Computed example of a mutant assay.
Amino acid sequence: MPNGSLEKWLYSHNYFLDLMQRLDILIDVACALQHLHCEYSTLVIHCDLKPSNVLLDQDMVAHLSDFSLSHTWLSCTR
């Protein structure tokens, strides 16, 4: 992703996120998690959500990455 990870933007002195960018990223991540937990055909739990696993595209839209520790369930009761 062109803008790297959220970790770089949060912990580097060379990058800055204003309040609106932070809120937009938060909403992107929340929407992705909602899709994985509620709207995808199988329940997916990420299990490793952290700033280095949130990647930012050229428009600063957040995308989840690194699903190596994720768990899936074919059916669940909600």
Score class of each variant (00 low, 15 high):
Met1Ala: 15
Met1Thr: 13
Pro2Ala: 15
Pro2Asn: 14
Pro2Val: 12
Ser5Cys: 09
Glu7Leu: 10
Glu7Phe: 07
Lys8Met: 06
Trp9Met: 01
Trp9Pro: 01
Leu10Tyr: 02
Leu10Gly: 01
Tyr11Cys: 13
Tyr11Thr: 10
Ser12Pro: 01
His13Pro: 12
Asn14Phe: 00
Tyr15Glu: 07
Tyr15Met: 10
Phe16Val: 08
Leu17Lys: 01
Leu17Cys: 05
Leu17Arg: 02
Asp18Asn: 15
Leu19Met: 12
Leu19Thr: 11
Met20Asn: 14
Arg22Leu: 07
Leu23Arg: 13
Leu23Tyr: 14
Leu23Ile: 15
Leu23Trp: 12
Leu23Lys: 12
Asp24Glu: 15
Asp24Lys: 15
Asp24Cys: 13
Ile25Arg: 09
Ile25Thr: 01
Leu26Pro: 00
Ile27Lys: 12
Asp28Val: 01
Val29Asn: 11
Ala32Gln: 03
Ala32Val: 03
Leu33Thr: 09
Leu33Gln: 13
Leu33His: 04
Gln34Ile: 08
Gln34Tyr: 14
Gln34Met: 06
Gln34Cys: 10
His35Leu: 10
Leu36His: 13
Leu36Tyr: 12
Cys38Tyr: 09
Cys38Arg: 11
Glu39Lys: 13
Tyr40Phe: 15
Tyr40Val: 00
Ser41Ile: 02
Thr42Val: 13
Thr42Gly: 04
Leu43Asp: 00
Leu43Ala: 07
Leu43Cys: 10
Cys47Asn: 14
Lys50His: 09
Lys50Asn: 11
Ser52Thr: 14
Ser52Lys: 13
Leu55Tyr: 08
Leu55His: 07
Leu56Cys: 02
Gln58Ala: 14
Gln58Glu: 15
Asp59Met: 04
Met60Ser: 08
Met60Ile: 04
Met60Asn: 03
Ala62Asp: 03
Ala62His: 02
Ala62Lys: 02
His63Gln: 14
His63Ala: 01
Ser65Ile: 01
Phe67Ala: 05
Ser68Tyr: 05
Ser68Arg: 15
Leu69Val: 01
Leu69Asp: 03
Leu69Lys: 12
Leu69Thr: 12
Thr72Gly: 00
Trp73Gly: 02
Trp73Ala: 12
Leu74Arg: 05
Leu74Pro: 03
Ser75Val: 04
Cys76Pro: 00
Thr77Gln: 07
Thr77Asn: 06
Arg78Met: 09
